[in-house]
Design a protein around this nucleic acid. Sequence first.
DNA 1: CTGAAAGCGCTTACAG
DNA 2: CTGAAAGCGCTTACAG
Lengths: 340, 340
Amino acid sequence: MTKKLTIYDIARLAGVSKSTVSRVLTNNASVDPATAQHVRQVMEEHDFVPNFHASAIKGKSPFIGVIVPVLSWDLMSDLLLGLSRAIEASPFEIVLFTCNPAKGYRDILDRILATRMTAGLLVVPFAPVPTELITLYQDGMPVVLIDIVSWRVDLPSVSDDNVGGALAAVNHLLQLGHRRIAYVQGPAELPCYQERYQGYCMALRNAGLEPDSRLFFSGHDLDFNGQAAIEEIVKLPPSVRPTAIFTTSDMSACGVLTSSEEHGIHVPKDLALVSYNDMHLAAHTRPALTTVRQPFQDMGRRAAEMLLSLLNTSDSIHSLNIELPTQLIIRDSCGSSLTV
Amino acid sequence: MTKKLTIYDIARLAGVSKSTVSRVLTNNASVDPATAQHVRQVMEEHDFVPNFHASAIKGKSPFIGVIVPVLSWDLMSDLLLGLSRAIEASPFEIVLFTCNPAKGYRDILDRILATRMTAGLLVVPFAPVPTELITLYQDGMPVVLIDIVSWRVDLPSVSDDNVGGALAAVNHLLQLGHRRIAYVQGPAELPCYQERYQGYCMALRNAGLEPDSRLFFSGHDLDFNGQAAIEEIVKLPPSVRPTAIFTTSDMSACGVLTSSEEHGIHVPKDLALVSYNDMHLAAHTRPALTTVRQPFQDMGRRAAEMLLSLLNTSDSIHSLNIELPTQLIIRDSCGSSLTV
DNA sequence: CTGAAAGCGCTTACAG
DNA sequence: CTGAAAGCGCTTACAG
């Protein structure tokens, strides 16, 4: 194994002291531009890369911690993709922590806190943000939340516009002439669903309509939700039966599709459907889903950029909160092309 | 910020020297069981976690590097999931490197090599395994390949059974009575496709059939592939036209589905379809795909376990190669339930 | 089995 | 602007 060079070797080769080499490495102290240039060249020639761990022990860590819940959701990869692209271009590396939602992130935060392992943290919270994280932030560790659930907390964050997304979705159905639009959501305790419901109500009211509680469906199991909604809907008297349905997640939409098929209900002819997420599968269901695209890749990128800037400026910027717009992707399930 | 404890503090609290504390930390030297127990208890009481970076500078790194190509493929998350579960239970953390396939992994490997940043490496190769990696391994850095492309190289690896998977897929179609089975694959230079083709041929020959070159389709763009195959197939004279099609990736199957629909070809009635991968969307297309499930989560887990054991035994185990079985998931696209 | 001491590769006041 | 020196928190021969 080729002997590893140290700053001492570089110092010797460049004819300076290792203090100077270290200074050009951290470039936070004044070094004569000419010597700096020379040192840099020597490092280049010898493919010198400083030992991360040695730097980290006194200086700052070269790692950015990324804490995500379930990796098995395809949109999580989009998020990781966006964020890793942004970090790739920086001198930092990504340390990935997956968090068993059941266990919570206390363990992980303790470890990070105790070991000063990371310079900053990018976290995708899946439960109310724990006070440990806030403490950590107040103590000087830069943290940026990628908040897809919309937990409100006084920390820098990137989120997406749930109200606006739902508004656009329901407006689209209204424009197609639908008046009775059912609403299906996941666990009611999650703020993102509350916000999407707000958007739904707002759209209806703007059109002079009132939400009908018989058309409201909520439940924990997304997969199952949509199916359950259809089971209820078919029992409704024709006069109150919806002609359209807004599912606040694509998994629910899949349930709606499955169950509709079983009941001989044709989507979109008999029932128009607009969904939420734009998971990869949304383009491949039959009919393909008209759905609100959440900008996960962008959210990842923006969050990483925010963290990187927090890392660069020693003065702690006050809590930034960026909310990214969503986009309605029109495919086949809403029957846009049909006359309703 | 609560003052960080060091082994010196623990030593003082436990009434021993920091050498002893360090020894129980690394537990690779003889320490009196009673004192070890006592020290451990003191650490426990004070929530002591050693500084990773400090350990890493002399001892071994607490990081396992994971190098993956595109994160945007949903099965990649399954892989990460399996591997992170296994590593979670260990004292190691995951450092994630995403590799722009265009750039290749030379840069990354150089960095890892130069900085001794990781104790071991889990890599998902997307291009022929570079010699740097082999050198790294020979120089003592444990490496395990998660080889979904089936690059053959003398390194510990976990892969899946391409020949067997294809064999099962085509056998299933043969059992349903199909005699003319088309074959669609991705880039021919990838060994995994060559192996799947072997399985395809093997199944046909076992049934006394010969592969027909007019039913062979290969191309780089998976998405497009399936569509292109259908375009060709419809031009074929009825006598040679296939009654079934085996696509070696789910993306191609999506293309087949789309294009079939356009041509009024009903899957599975007019054309039975068996695919490969079992991506998440496979269950949600219409018809849902009968497809060969690749055991990505298991592959991740097994690879991590192998690496962990490599990390524990100082004597380098000779190149282990595990090949995991695939499983044919029967859904609707093959028309199992129909009489052909 | 255990301490005192030297050292890992880097950073950072402290002088100049 | 730059060196010599002390130090980060841990590990590991070296004695005992």
